[in-house]
């Protein structure tokens, strides 16, 4: 057991818990943040993705110990931002959502990508999404959504 402090969706939080727990479980079980999903439990599918210091990570592969003093933003936190609104509208407009299980992770991947590269090429978008598996869409409409978000949100990132 250890005291673990980090910033979660704009609030400082402190837990007295096992640092060997997975961030994903802490988010879902301790904070009831169920937007991040478990799809594979081993960092392949990206359904569990969250932002750590603005960058996408897989919360299923992140021990809580590695979150100390970091800033974590889940889809619940991100959905309160203006950037989210732009990305959401883009996904809706292009039809990038089907079953929705990969979607929160895709949105996080989109944000992480645009943060680093506000005007990505198609190839850069594919790299940016390459750790997020979607079985429904064949990815094309998701790629369109990222392009649309980059365009509509020009200046935001």
């Amino acid at each position: 057991m250890a005291k673990i402090k980090f910033k979660l969706n704009d609030k400082f939080v402190e837990l007295d818990t096992d640092p060997n727990r997975r961030l994903l479980d802490v988010l879902r079980d301790d904070f009831n943040l169920t937007g991040p999903k478990e799809g594979c439990g081993e960092g392949e599918c990206g359904a569990c993705a969250v932002l750590m210091d603005q960058k996408i990570i897989n919360s299923c592969c992140t021990p809580l110990a590695n979150v100390i003093d970091k800033e974590i933003i889940t889809i619940e936190g991100f959905s309160k931002t203006k950037k989210f609104e732009v990305i959401k509208d883009a996904y809706a407009k292009t039809g990038g959502v089907q079953c929705g299980f990969c979607t929160p992770g895709m949105i996080i991947a989109t944000e992480s990508l645009l943060n680093k590269n506000p005007h990505p090429t198609d190839f850069e978008i594919k790299i940016g999404l390459s750790g997020n598996l979607c079985r429904c869409t064949g990815y094309n409409l998701i790629i369109e959504a990222v392009k649309e978000a980059a365009k509509a949100g020009d200046g935001l990132w």
């Binding site: 889809i75 619940e76 959905s79 996904y91 809706a92 959502v97 929160p104």
Partner: peptide, 9 residues
Amino acid sequence: DNEEKISGQ
């Protein structure tokens, strides 16, 4: 269902 799926709700 876009809204609830995209926002993780």
